[in-house]
């Protein structure tokens, strides 16, 4: 038992305190030390320049130390030497933390190139800091590595380009990408279709214009529906004013008479790219019914009997859900 503990102890001390000073552990200790010193400097209120120098030193030691440690311990998941990639990531994190703002995009795109630069640096600069030309075989390896890094960088850029498209046209996210040869939707986070706010705005317009209006007015309004829709389209355009997909949405409406009132179908037709070749549209149904204003309580009844029957007022109520229908809406009758 004691033998076993001693062995573990020896292994730990051997890991923490290497035989020679020129080892990766020394660099890590330097990194830890300068990191601690940077906190001391910050708490004791030194100038920004001093802090910057100490922090930069800490980062440099971290980059070298971690890269060395990964290389020396031969940590190669799936046979890939990850040391330059880790060091490159640290360098990018440091460089882009210097600049205020969010630079994740730029940092990810530059990361593979920085890593290759770190690999290439020792090949092109000798220990005496003189430029040298690496051996032909090393040159071939570096060319291959550089091309691979450029490919990875392009993939990152493509990913960010995809995000740009999806922020430009948020409706696309609510579609499904199963037939795509390029992308895969991993999380099922359906983005909100831009048609929903459009339909809500149209609903508001219809309610503003028809709710609590005399019933004959409603019938006249519905007769001139096409003219009214031009106005509604113009008014609801402000919902999509900031979005580049405004041109893809087309608002139409179709009345249908019921035995008691009308049903107005508001439709937002998507004319942009869609998984269904025929496109699709979102639909919102509004019911417009006449309502006889309720006669007030008993004491006014006698007075009312002498008057003519009050005109019916319209009452508009719209469905909350906006079902998605494939294809194009049927052409208007007539």
């Amino acid at each position: 038992m004691i033998q076993f503990l001693k062995e573990i102890w020896d292994r730990i001390t051997g890991f923490l305190f290497p035989q020679q000073y020129f080892a990766w552990q020394s660099i890590i200790y330097l990194a830890l030390f300068s990191w601690a010193m940077s906190w001391v400097a910050r708490l004791s209120g030194t100038t920004a320049l001093t802090q910057w120098i100490i922090i930069t030193g800490s980062w440099v030691f971290w980059v070298i130390g971690l890269g060395w440690a990964l290389e020396a311990n031969n940590i190669r998941p799936f046979g890939i030497p990850i040391a330059p990639w880790v060091s490159g990531a640290l360098v990018c994190a440091y460089l882009f933390a210097l600049i205020p703002g969010n630079h994740l995009t730029a940092a990810l795109i530059v990361w593979p190139l920085v890593s290759v630069g770190l690999v290439a640096l020792p090949a092109f600069i000798s220990w005496e800091l003189k430029p040298k030309l690496p051996m032909p075989f090393v040159r071939q390896q570096l060319i291959l590595l550089l091309l691979l890094a450029l490919l990875f960088s392009s993939w990152f850029q493509f990913y960010f380009r995809l995000q740009t498209w999806l922020t430009d046209y948020p409706t696309l996210l609510s579609d499904d990408f199963n037939r795509s040869g390029f992308v895969l939707k991993v999380a099922s986070s359906d983005g909100q279709s831009g048609g929903i706010p459009l339909l809500t705005a149209a609903e508001q317009q219809v309610k503003d214009q028809l709710d609590d209006t005399p019933w004959p007015w409603v019938e006249r309004w519905l007769l001139n529906l096409n003219g009214q829709m031009v106005k509604i389209r113009n008014d609801t355009r402000s919902v999509l004013i900031d979005s580049s997909e405004a041109d893809f949405w087309e608002l139409t409406a179709r009345p249908r008479s019921l035995e008691n009132g009308y049903a107005l179908q508001l439709m937002a037709v998507w004319n942009g790219p869609a998984s269904n070749p025929e496109g699709y549209f979102l639909e919102k149904t509004c019911l417009i019914r006449p309502r006889i204003p309720s006669v007030r309580s008993t004491d006014t009844r006698e007075a009312n009997e002498s008057e003519p029957t009050p005109t019916a007022m319209a009452q508009v109520s719209c469905d909350l859900e906006t079902p998605k229908r494939l294809g194009q809406p049927d052409p208007l009758p007539g």
Partner: peptide
């Protein structure tokens, strides 16, 4: 926060393009 940003936007990845390429 860069991390939240990644999680939010990671919904659509060009994985098929990468594998097929």
């Amino acid at each position: 926060m860069p991390f939240e940003l990644l999680v939010d936007e990671a919904a659509v990845l060009p994985l098929r393009a990468i594998i097929f390429q």
